[in-house]
């Protein structure tokens, strides 16, 4: 598919997001087409160090944490999804081919899978002073910065939709299934009424 044909699942919300930002309390921003790679590997096999070198980012071992780099292969963030599962996040134009090759070489004869799942989820940035309050309307997690500050991530439910939350210095990246994105955007805009 060419770049001209790609359309963000949240493209139709651009105007309403802009209008919501006028209050200064909230900033909803569509960050479409970000590269997402699902990495599955059993780190017990001693292959982790090689993979970390290939990716240029350590694989976070502690549950619900992220590690990031801006050096090496590019602007990569690795979020913990499970004890043997990580989500590698990068910019939309990330060159995947060298990454796949490097991971394959590092894996040797071990079982490692690196799968492009960029089309599964789209990214929504929820930022601003009331971002935490807005998400708290539909999320059971403690999102206080002392508990869920930068460097933390979580797979959880937001307004009954499965999401991956990644804490950012100024808010949260909400990774939501493309088919749920419009629903979640509607829900967030509705929940945000009192802050606008």
């Amino acid at each position: 598919m060419t770049a001209e044909e790609r359309r963000s699942p949240l493209a139709a919300f651009a105007d309403r997001f802009d209008a919501a930002a006028k209050s200064g309390n909230l900033r909803l921003t569509d960050l479409p087409f970000r590269t997402q790679l699902n990495l599955r590997v059993d780190t017990g096999g001693g292959v982790a160090a090689g993979l970390e070198a290939a990716l240029g980012v350590p694989l976070p071992a502690e549950p619900n944490t992220v590690s990031a780099t801006t050096a090496g292969s590019g602007d990569l963030t690795v979020t913990w999804l499970g004890p043997d599962e990580w989500l590698v996040l990068g910019p939309p134009d990330l060159a995947q081919e060298p990454l796949h090759r490097a991971v394959q070489e590092a894996a040797g004869d071990q079982h490692v899978s690196l799968v492009d799942v960029s089309a599964q989820r789209t990214t929504l940035l929820v930022a601003g002073p009331r971002a935490r309050d807005l998400l708290a309307h539909g999320c059971g997690l403690d999102l206080h910065p002392s508990v869920f500050g930068p460097g933390r991530c979580a797979q959880t439910m937001l307004a009954r939709a499965q999401v991956v939350l990644v804490a950012q210095p100024d808010g949260f990246h909400v990774l939501v299934r493309a088919s749920f994105a419009a629903y979640l955007a509607e829900w967030l805009l509705d929940a945000a009424t009192e802050y606008l």
Binding site: N64, G140, A154, T156
Partner: peptide
Amino acid sequence: WCGPRDETE
């Protein structure tokens, strides 16, 4: 792995 979460998860 993830700590305390709601039953609905």
